Simulated assay, not measured.
Amino acid sequence: MKRIFKFVEKYFFIIILLAVAISLVYPKSFEWVLSNYNGINILNLLLSIVLFTMGTTLKADDFINVFKNPKEIAVGISAQYVIMPLIALALASAFSLDSALTVGLVLVGTVPGGTASDVITFLAKGDVALSVSLTAVSTVISPILTPIITLLLISNQINFNPIDMFISIIEIVIIPIILGLILNYKFPEFCERLKDYLPAISSIVICLIVAGVVGANKQAILTSSTIIIVVIVLQYFLAMSLGFGIGYLVGMKKKQIITVAIELAFQNSGLSTSLAKTHFPSLSQATVPGALYSVWQNLAGSILAYVFRRFL
Rank of each mutant, 00 (worst) to 15 (best):
M165R: 02
I148L: 14
I148M: 11
S168K: 00
I174P: 07
V173I: 13
I141P: 00
N159S: 15
L134N: 04
Q157V: 10
I141Q: 02
S138H: 09
L145Y: 11
L134V: 10
P176M: 12
T146A: 03
I170Q: 06
I175D: 02
T150Q: 04
I154D: 09
I148R: 02
I182Y: 07
T135W: 00
S168E: 00
S133V: 07
I182S: 06
I167A: 04
T139V: 13
V173R: 05
M165K: 01
D164Q: 12
T146W: 00
P162I: 09
I148K: 05
I154M: 04
P143D: 10
I175A: 05
S138Y: 08
S138Q: 11
P143G: 04
I175T: 07
P143F: 01
P143S: 05
T146E: 03
T150R: 00
I170W: 06
I154H: 05
L152H: 13
N156L: 09
S133F: 06
F160G: 05
I169E: 08
L179F: 14
F166Q: 10
P147T: 11
I158N: 11
Q157M: 15
I148S: 09
L134W: 03
L181T: 13
A136T: 05
N159A: 15
L153S: 05
S155L: 11
G180A: 04
N159G: 12
I163L: 12
I175M: 05
S138R: 02
L179V: 12
L183R: 03
L151F: 15
D164H: 10
I144E: 09
N159M: 10
T150P: 01
F160W: 04
T150Y: 00
L183I: 11
L152S: 11
P147R: 06
I175Y: 07
L145Q: 08
T146F: 01
I169Y: 11
E171R: 14
M165C: 00
N156R: 14
P147E: 08
P162G: 08
T150K: 05
N159P: 03
M165E: 00
A136K: 01
S168V: 00
F166C: 09
I170N: 06
P176I: 07
A136D: 01
G180I: 02
D164F: 11
I172D: 09
I174D: 02
I170P: 06
S142C: 03
L153Q: 10
P162T: 06
T146S: 13
A136I: 02
F166I: 03
L153W: 00
A136E: 01
I169V: 11
V137W: 11
P147H: 08
L152A: 15
L183V: 13
S138V: 12
L181A: 08
S133A: 15
I177F: 13
I148D: 02
S155K: 12
V137G: 10
